[in-house]
Design a protein around this nucleic acid. Sequence first.
DNA 1: CTTGTTAGTGTAAATTAAACACTAACAAAA
DNA 2: TTTTGTTAGTGTTTAATTTACACTAACAAG
Lengths: 247, 247
Amino acid sequence: MSEYNPSLSVDCVIFGLDLNEQALKILVYERDIFHNEYPGNKNLKFPGSLVAEDKNLDDSAYQVLNELTGLKNVCLKQFHAFGNPDRIKNGEEKEWVERHYGVNIHRVVTVAYYALIRIDKLNPDQSMIKDKLRWINVDNANNLAFDHSHILEHAREALQMDMILQNVIAFELLPEKFTFMQLQSMYELILGTNLDKRNFRKKMSKADYIVPLGEKQNGVAHKPAMLYAFDRKKFEKSRETISTFFV
Amino acid sequence: MSEYNPSLSVDCVIFGLDLNEQALKILVYERDIFHNEYPGNKNLKFPGSLVAEDKNLDDSAYQVLNELTGLKNVCLKQFHAFGNPDRIKNGEEKEWVERHYGVNIHRVVTVAYYALIRIDKLNPDQSMIKDKLRWINVDNANNLAFDHSHILEHAREALQMDMILQNVIAFELLPEKFTFMQLQSMYELILGTNLDKRNFRKKMSKADYIVPLGEKQNGVAHKPAMLYAFDRKKFEKSRETISTFFV
DNA sequence: CTTGTTAGTGTAAATTAAACACTAACAAAA
DNA sequence: TTTTGTTAGTGTTTAATTTACACTAACAAG
């Protein structure tokens, strides 16, 4: 393991979809030292790490994610670098970082990534810091540590834009088998809008990468819904042909 | 002036529109030491700088741009951070950076910005390094110094995306008074497509932020075109109301 | 067998996108 | 003064997409 660069970090905004609570959530790390000491969410931060001198940024972010969740092949995307010189405040914030990493820092530029994972896939036992992780609703995530609330705003926007341009597969967030209503909820929760059910189904059922499984929900106390799956190959193929860019 | 952080830089991909040559161009800096020594464009790089410890990233990029061009109020947007440990090769590349800045470097992460300026606004006399600057066609800009060709690819994509989403005002690139054909050329050169003239005019003339000046070209050896101007206030207002996000 | 709950379906009207070819206005050259 | 070369400017038809909107079907639980 080579040395950390004390000026460089990566942070991961990890999004998950809670279809029961109908909420978009993020996975945050609870700083132990400040447990219950600080009001609001000031003890919550995004998982992150200083960057080792011989590692590139993507790999560093990936490693954070992997150590945290035990997951591989996770969708991870850089969206912005944050470099305000006082984004880590002198005092407790700076002290915490220095104690945590065992290095002296001056100013730290962080390169922020967002990741999409399925909440149910996260097995806490595979995490190196399982008891310090919490899923919280994005809408209740104000007043985080450092400038992480600011980072979150950017992350949500980036996710929205990528979803609109279909550059990013928000299908990472859904279970393998999902219903149309769940698909619609995903769009609604990420975009923050309400969509018309019939028009949504009409439009989405034209996409060949959403394949009906001929299988229904069971055990539900209402009309069971058809289950669908996402075909990644067909999706990749259809992405290539989004060439017709109008004005 | 405070110290440079030897691990952090900003680079500016400066786009300009050459309506005579019908080309999208970039402003590059010619490294003097390697003048005519290197094949291809290996002596050309984007303007950039190491980041001072007490400066934020946006301000650093802005300063690079300002010292280079003498321009203020320039459209500048961060689009990606590049941090491959060997993006600056050992040997001549590393040596050049160390000689240029007078510091020893190990690994440098660069935060890249793109800027949009009008080529005619750049008065070389206001630049601190006027004789080292060159506008080159983006399409001939392969094989630049460091990883700058790679950075350019990302910059073009970011510009295209921002233009499609109308998050960025590519109007920064046009003269104050422009014709519809020039407007169309801008879209075509940035998006790399051909657009139908009549459909383009139909669509764009609905935008209230493009205002006809009731004034025509003169001195041209063909039917003179109507001149238009861009109304920034109306544009900002219309941006707010792009709320109807479909799927 | 009633109730509560979510699934699933179609149509008509309005809007937008796409394809496509000729005349008008000017300067320069003949 | 006429011709030539060049770019400006204009409309219609067809197809595709978007929007708005309300009822029946299928299940579990009580």
